[in-house]
């Protein structure tokens, strides 16, 4: 994949850079990130950009300037709620949401994660949930996430009341639903991981 950047990057950055290209090449149209005209439609469309330390437009600018590590350390990629507003509005067809997913995977792989932003803990908990039960058990997911990220929240009255309201309306599963042939799910996961994933 030809690189749009001509400056010489430090070693760590250049490794990140090439792995990022592997990631964006793994979905159709990923390479269109090179066509960014810095118009800011993504940032303007993003319902969360006001709270991000680096806006979606700046993500592309930083990446092109060779600051991929700073991109991975930003809270931006973990705040994205995947609403795809940026993706459908980008005038040059950049798959912004998919690009942020690519960055999440790269951050996980290289263990370059934002400090004090525990969102990746949610993905971890979610994936363990699937491996254990085959289905997502919301109670367990919430417990596991809050234990790691915000333990004091587990003792909040609001959360207890919310859970109780759901329980009395039979809208909270007190036991996990399980996939019968969980062995199949685990075999697929193991195989995909062994293949190196994407």
């Amino acid at each position: 994949m030809p690189s749009p950047v001509t400056i010489v990057l430090p070693k760590k950055e250049s490794v990140l850079y090439s792995q990022f290209w592997d990631q964006v090449s793994s979905f159709p149209g990923g390479h269109k990130i090179r066509n960014c005209i810095q118009c800011g439609s993504c940032t303007g469309s993003c319902p969360i950009s006001h709270a991000m330390d680096v806006t979606p437009r700046q993500i592309v600018a930083l990446f092109r300037a060779g600051f991929l590590e700073d991109v991975l350390r930003s809270n931006t990629i973990w705040m994205c709620a995947s609403c795809y507003a940026c993706t459908v509005r980008c005038p040059v067809g950049i798959r912004v949401t998919d690009t942020l997913y690519a960055l999440k995977r790269l951050g996980h792989k290289k263990k370059i994660l934002p400090r004090r932003v525990p969102v990746s803990a949610l993905s971890d908990a979610f994936c363990t949930n699937i491996r254990t039960y085959g289905r997502n058990w919301e109670v367990w997911l919430g417990l596991k996430y809050y234990l790691r990220a915000e333990p004091k929240k587990l003792f909040s009255l609001d959360l207890a009341r919310f859970a109780l309201r759901l329980i009395t309306r039979r809208r909270l599963a007190l036991r996990p639903a399980r996939v019968e042939r969980i062995g199949e799910v685990r075999a697929i996961i193991d195989k995909a991981v062994a293949m190196g994933g994407l």
Partner: peptide
């Protein structure tokens, strides 16, 4: 059926 993986799994490993 099993969980689709939602937005979480694809943040970790796309092939999985």
């Amino acid at each position: 059926w099993n969980c689709c993986g939602a937005t979480s799994y694809i943040s970790m490993n796309k092939l999985t």
